[in-house]
């Protein structure tokens, strides 16, 4: 469904994605793990067209998306949903307007009808109808994450990206979000690509796991094989050891 071939992205002299290859199959949940600053977010932004790669090809359902503009990009974007790391809710809009945003702006739906769907999606993530009239700043971090999830699934997209869905949440709330992700995605039958460094979250939502290190995929495999990958990098990462082949670059 999504195919990345030799994708390169550099910021000045710094190479962030170095001939990256990755395949996401239709209907699967792929989780990309990797340390901070290994290029996980940049990869997602390249696929979404928020950043333009310096080279390589990104295909969605066989269609090259790296050079799309205007209407064509909008058409491809309509198939995507995205949950941002910091939730990225529009703080000038009410919660329900946030959830309904893609329906009203992207799908040209009438406000009353969009509101109904928004309330329904909010219920799906465990939020009462009354919370729809609050502003995002009035919600806790966990609730904001739920609203962001509701917004990501509101247009019933075929492909959903999750950017560190559990970062900044307590372990229990993190697990609640993981459950919601699994449940919502199953209901929609969507293809998902998530990036995280939270192993508990990765184990819960992944069908397959890929590990990104220094701009390359160094391991891809089924989620249940992650504990016997025979890859010293993966082992170090999933056990969270400071010692090992991955040395933290403390000086940038």
């Amino acid at each position: 469904m999504i195919q990345l071939r030799s994708v390169r992205k550099t910021f000045g002299p710094k190479v962030v994605l170095d001939d990256l290859n990755l395949d996401v199959k239709k209907g699967e949940s792929l989780v990309v793990i990797g340390g901070s600053g290994t290029g996980k977010s940049v990869m997602l932004k390249c696929i979404l067209g928020l950043l333009r790669p310096n080279g390589g090809s990104i295909k969605v359902d066989g269609e090259e998306v790296t050079n799309l503009k205007g209407k064509d990009r909008d058409r491809v974007m309509q198939r995507f949903g995205m949950l941002f790391q910091g939730s990225a809710l529009f703080d000038s809009l009410k919660v329900w307007e946030n959830v309904a945003f893609g329906l009203i702006q992207g799908r040209k739906m009438q406000r009353p009808q969009a509101r109904e769907i928004a309330i329904e999606k909010l219920a799906q993530v465990g939020l009462a109808e009354s919370s729809g009239d609050l502003f995002p700043a009035e919600l806790s971090g966990g609730m904001q994450k739920r609203v962001a999830l509701a917004r990501a699934i509101a247009t019933s997209p075929e492909i959903i990206f999750f950017d560190e869905p559990t970062t900044g949440l307590d372990p229990i709330m993190a697990d609640v979000i993981n459950d919601l992700i699994v449940e919502c995605v199953k209901k929609l039958g969507a293809t998902t690509l998530s990036i995280t460094h939270d192993m508990a979250s990765a184990r819960k939502i992944a069908d397959r796991i890929a590990m990104l290190h220094k701009g390359k995929m160094i391991w891809v495999g089924s989620a249940k094989d992650i504990d016997h990958s025979d890859n010293p990098y993966v082992d170090q990462f999933i056990h969270g050891r400071a010692q090992g082949p991955i040395s933290m670059e403390l000086r940038a």
Binding site: K45, G49, L50, M77, G86, A88, F90, D91, F101, G106
Partner: peptide, 15 residues
Amino acid sequence: MRVTEQIDALTTLST
């Protein structure tokens, strides 16, 4: 909105 990724979110919501 830029630093909290809200502008990116706009783009992903076809706006």
